[in-house]
């Protein structure tokens, strides 16, 4: 098999419109800055808030949402184990958030055609973090604070300060999808 080299990038978050457009499916990216966590229950609440014409607890503009619910932090640490959850459960809610300016999502696993269309339409990016590497990923999170839906426990919305947080671009703003292209490259039948 051909050994292609991996393109490494260091990017600031929130993610600017211009930078989002330069990211390519397959890029290995280290993110530094501020992101927010939200998973199933928080998405459901945000979606209901939008349906009722209410404001969201976080501004979507140029922000990145990490689909993650951490394990509890031990004393003196910012967070517990903190790897990605499966993104497809958020597919129902993601297009509306992307249309409000959400610039990036970090998770793992496949996305629907509707999400891919919304990514292209809004010049956004879908990143994967390595699933099941929650202990390792926690080391790139330097601060964590619950900012909304505290009653949801691990599913609350958290603001995270991250430093050199490793992710891979799966779907870029042009709609290229690494999950599809990589399988084609490596399958043997």
């Amino acid at each position: 098999m051909e050994m292609s080299t991996i393109m490494e990038r260091h990017i600031k978050v929130p993610l600017s419109n211009e930078e989002a457009l330069t990211l390519q499916s397959g890029d290995y990216v280290y993110l530094t800055g501020t992101i927010y966590t939200a998973r199933d229950a928080a998405h459901k609440r945000m979606y209901e808030a939008l349906s009722n014409g209410e404001a969201l607890p976080i501004d979507m503009g140029n922000n990145v949402i990490y689909y993650m619910g951490p394990s509890p932090a031990r004393e003196g640490r910012p967070i517990g184990s903190a790897g990605p959850t499966t993104s497809s459960r958020m597919d129902k809610y993601a297009p509306a958030l992307l249309d409000l300016g959400l610039k990036g999502m970090i998770g793992k696993g496949k996305r629907s055609q509707e999400v891919r269309d919304a990514i292209i339409r809004n010049g956004a990016v879908y990143f994967a973090a390595v699933g099941g590497a929650g202990a390792l990923l926690s080391r790139s999170i330097i601060a964590s604070e619950v900012i909304a839906y505290d009653d949801l426990g691990t599913e609350a919305i958290r603001r995270l300060e991250i430093k050199e947080f490793p992710v891979i671009v799966v779907i870029d703003a042009q709609g290229n999808n690494l999950y599809e292209t990589a399988i084609e490259e490596y399958k043997k039948d």
Partner: peptide, 19 residues
């Protein structure tokens, strides 16, 4: 990364996966 993750989990007593 997965091997490194396991090492950190054992050393720091932080779960291998948050789930």
């Amino acid at each position: 990364q997965l091997q490194k993750n396991m090492k950190i989990a054992g050393e720091d007593m932080i779960p291998i996966c948050q789930d």
